[in-house]
């Protein structure tokens, strides 16, 4: 059923995609940084500190999206026992942890000059920290559980239970009073970010996505080789 995802079919595709991304990444990164730091205008209240948004928002989105995809694949893996999904999850987890940490760090560097505090215990920030711990436990389980069957079970459990946190993060700003502002961009509503800032934001999101794809493909390739190496002897 999930044959199209078999490592043997996509190995060459991974090679090609990696080469392609490597060739376009740096030009796009430079354009993105120029827009974020120089060309985009300062905000009418926040001034130049708004430029941190171009890092903070894409990081948070990718941190959430990684966990959501991992939870989805874990559920499929649990139901259909497709081993390959486990490899994908293992490759996604470090990307998610990286960007969740970055969202928190850039967020506090943004909070200090605008709110007046690096950190507050409001619902949005706290739930984001909980997400970071879920990623942390997940990666620890990858590192320390050697028994493959047990590892698949434990990591699926962590991702599926952790996914309950995702709607809490998303709606924390609507359900409770928080210091963090509500969402500026939501489906079906016009964006509350002016186009002169929205396009740089989309560009930076593209940069972050390309980088994530690069890391993901390299990690996934490593996992494939690791498995095949074990199999050389048994063949």
């Amino acid at each position: 059923m999930f044959n199209f995802l078999l490592p043997s079919r996509i190995y060459l595709l991974i090679e090609k995609t990696l080469k392609f991304i490597n060739s376009v990444f740096f030009p796009i990164l430079l354009i993105g940084l120029t827009f974020a730091l120089v060309i985009s205008p300062p905000d009418y209240i926040q001034g130049d500190s708004v430029r941190i948004m171009y890092l903070h928002v894409p990081s948070a989105w990718i941190g959430l999206a990684c966990f959501a995809s991992m939870a989805f694949l874990s559920i499929l893996n649990f139901i259909f026992k497709t081993k390959n999904f486990f490899l994908i999850n293992k490759s996604l987890a470090p990307i998610g942890l990286l960007f969740t940490c970055l969202a928190i760090i850039t967020g506090s560097l943004w909070g200090k000059p605008t709110w007046g505090a690096f950190w507050v215990w409001d619902a949005r920030l706290t739930s984001m920290m909980v997400l970071m711990f879920f990623y942390f436990f997940l990666i620890l389980s990858f590192k320390f559980i050697k028994d493959q069957d047990k590892l698949v079970k434990v990591s699926s459990l962590i991702t599926i239970l952790g996914s309950i946190n995702l709607p809490i993060i998303k709606f924390s700003v609507d359900w409770w009073t928080t210091l963090h502002q509500p969402a500026s961009i939501s489906l079906g509503k016009s964006s509350k970010i002016d186009p002169s800032m929205l396009y740089p934001l989309i560009l930076m999101l593209l940069v972050f996505l390309l980088f994530s794809a690069l890391i993901f493909l390299m990690k996934y390739k490593t996992e494939i080789i690791r498995i095949k190496k074990k199999r050389i002897k048994s063949l």
Binding site: L33, L37, P42, G47, D48, S49, R51, I52, L55, H56, S59, L98, C101, L102, I105, T106, L109, W110, K112, P113, F211
Partner: peptide, 19 residues
């Protein structure tokens, strides 16, 4: 950046470094 420079540049440097 009107006083925000340290925060903006620090965020970009940390992001670039960690990535």
């Amino acid at each position: 950046m009107n006083g925000y420079g340290i925060y903006v540049w620090l965020s970009f440097v940390i992001t670039l470094g960690m990535c």
